[in-house]
Design a protein around this nucleic acid. Sequence first.
DNA 1: GTCGATACGTAC
DNA 2: GACGTACGTATCGACG
Length: 912
Amino acid sequence: MPTLTLIDGSSYLYRAFHALPPLTNAHGEPTGALFGIVNMLRTTMKAGSDYVAFVCDAPGRTFRDDLYPEYKANRPSMPDDLRAQVEPMMKIVGALGFPILCVPGVEADDVIGTLARQASAAGIHTVISTGDKDFAQLVGTDIILINTMTNTTLDIEGVIGKFGVRPEQIVDYLTLVGDSIDNVPGVEKCGPKTAAKWLAEYPDLDALIANAAKIGGKIGENLRAAIPRLPLSRELVTIRVDVPLDQAPTDLAMRPRDVEALRELYARYDFKAALKELEAGGDSFAAAAASATAAPAPAPAPVVATDVFSGPGEYELVTTEDRLAAWLEKLETAPLIAFDTETTSIDAMRAEVVGVSLAVEPGKACYIPVGHDYPGAPAQLSREHVLGALKPILEDPTRPKVGQHGKYDINVLSHYGIEVRGLAHDTMLESYILNATATRHDMDSLAQRYLGYTTVKYEEVCGKGAKQISFSQVDLDTAGKYAAEDADITLRLHHALWPRLEAEPSLRSVYLDIEIPVVPVLARMERTGVLIDANELRMQSQQLGKRMVELQQKAYAAAGHEFNLDSPKQLQAVLFDELGLPAKVKTPTGQPSTNEEALEALADSHELPRLILDYRGLAKLRSTYTDKLAGIVNPRTGRVHTSYHQGAVATGRISSSDPNLQNIPVRTEEGRRIRQAFVAPPGWRIVAADYSQIELRIMAHLSGDEGLVRAFTEGGDVHRATAAEVFGVAPDDVTTNQRRAAKAINFGLMYGMSAFGLARQLGVDRGEASDYMARYFSRFAGVRAFMDATREQAHQRGYVETLFGRRLYLENLTSRNQALRAGAERAAINAPMQGTAADIIKRAMISVAAWIAPRDDVRLLMQVHDELVLEVREDAVDAVKAGIEAHMSGAATLSVPLQVSVGVGANWDEAH
DNA sequence: GTCGATACGTAC
DNA sequence: GACGTACGTATCGACG
């Protein structure tokens, strides 16, 4: 049977635009969506097709707009960056030889629907390539859907599986659910589940409406209320199959491609590999799609049926000595080895290795199981033997390796005496440096985003929640597919990401000189952990608990009854409804707030707010810190091991979790007692070294403001110096209040604070705060110029950068939403300073780690954004103090000195 | 039981 | 609406 492929161009254009980072070519023209479209065309065409059309929406009104003026009213207009890519997209699609259909007055959906039905009538099989679920209504024995973004196809069975209704019921289903994007109203509170339930009970919408009286509850009322508008919704979601068209399916054959035009377009949009392929006369689709990714190899015929399983590549399960030897031989000559470990735990400190996967070229990977243990599990090579064989390669710094989140594997393998060296690349970090704003850098997301490939998910293999099993319980065939794919995809991702990174010298250098070298440093810190005096913390927990009970009783008395002090909702009822206190502060949802600011404001009117404030302070300390930390000590090491995250903060900072060691209290005396439980072992001392005012110094450097630079070069108290300038007095005559105001201005400026915010912070009126800021800017004009320039650059280029070239793309700068836009501008102001500080301390960590590597009398323990904490043997303290200070202040050369203060003590509190 | 939203609070 | 970046705990209601 001949086939017709219909590509939903508009749907892909939007999806590619939103899924891919805002890539640009050398001229600064946006190219991300183009890249995605070309990738999609390749996947679609790989299947081959007799007839094909690229269908898109033409501008202008359609029958749906006439039917319903609010149709698509919620759709934002097309972003400029996307609009700019439409014309080049059409040129590339045309030059590749695709027939293009844009019919004025008819939506792409209806063109596709009509062609699909015509094809059916002519005995032609149709594949609709789209990401839009609405097309499920067209699915039949000879019409299927394919989504190349998620690598899924949908036939009749698939529709039933996905929606719970048959294809011919999809129109009714969509009518009931509605579509908020297209502004099609459905039945209120009726989602996919309810719609499927009703349509299982009644054959169609008409039958449901006839029986609407029988549906009970609120949802029944909603259904009855919606009945009058359902026919309109139904018409809106129904794809037409009878619009007049000039072309028949059989008119839609591929045309020869226009090599000259393609050459010009590829060159212009920096599709370098595509260009190369074109010159070599190669396959233009594969070449254009992924500048450095080899097209997935067709599934090869199994060599030995039981040893090879199907997948996107040739994956092998290695269970014999011979095959292990063969793979070791491959590793010997591989230019780059992708590796991944499968384990029993997400926590590297507790994980046992269950298997190792390796890939040496795209599509060729293996999984070596060593610890799968379930009834009937086949024989496997021993863990000791396999790891022993891999050790020389993994430890050889001259053998480049690539991982996805390699820090995890480094730590896991270190349990087995393997110190991984030569981690040359990490795809998580490649993605992070290319576009930190893309919130997720996990492998599944990256495969989807950069390869258009849907991976096997961990949950699909091991389940989740209570039903989750250990990877060691997974049968070898399933485990092998999953694990080998991990290594394969890691390698493919690297081939897709590295060329893009390499093409941008500043990003390349942030990645190679900062992010990659910091990986083993963080890995080592996590493994080292920090010694905690758990008994001290348990004692504090008890004391806190006692005081909390007392406060609780007093609070009950003050309120006149018992209530849950931990529930803001109940507290709100007591304060504002029962006691009738005035609500001054509102939460984002409009509720009267019970936060600290609100309670402080009420503390003079009633005794309860103060009791709550005190209670909350203690509750926070106990739940988040004393209880938690005491319970999280690793029994094997006797220490607390945090996880540091390199891909979590958009500005380049490192974050910490499980436990978060970057928000241990310091501001209050009570809070600092927790730091007293972070101790040095006998014979050792805690050394804490922090940068003084690093972000403000960076602001001085980046802005070049003479006054601010001078304040730092002269040394002394920068806030006092600022106050002297702003208030026009001698530094010695600055009052406490003046200094406080100057400090608030200094900090606020770095966060993009307004006069309104400053007024609130200082408790002065807005005019006075405005006055302060005006005086500040007249004295420090360079700072204002720098901020204006940063804002300008952000708008011009869509991103801001740090001193070392790390980029932060800002999504909302062009938002029509005023609040979002203003927020993006503040982030743009802050990112260069916060990000440069992050770059500097990472550089310091790398140089400190290299310096202490040969020593056994000093260990890096923690990083808290502008502070490094170490433990040092007593006899080495003096030498280390001097060395740390030198390495940290030498981590960057700015126009102001980088001042570092170093403290020593028996615990972290004392070391400050 | 699990999950997500909301509120709150700790750090730099 | 009004100060940037994180992570963690508790409550509460929805869901199955």
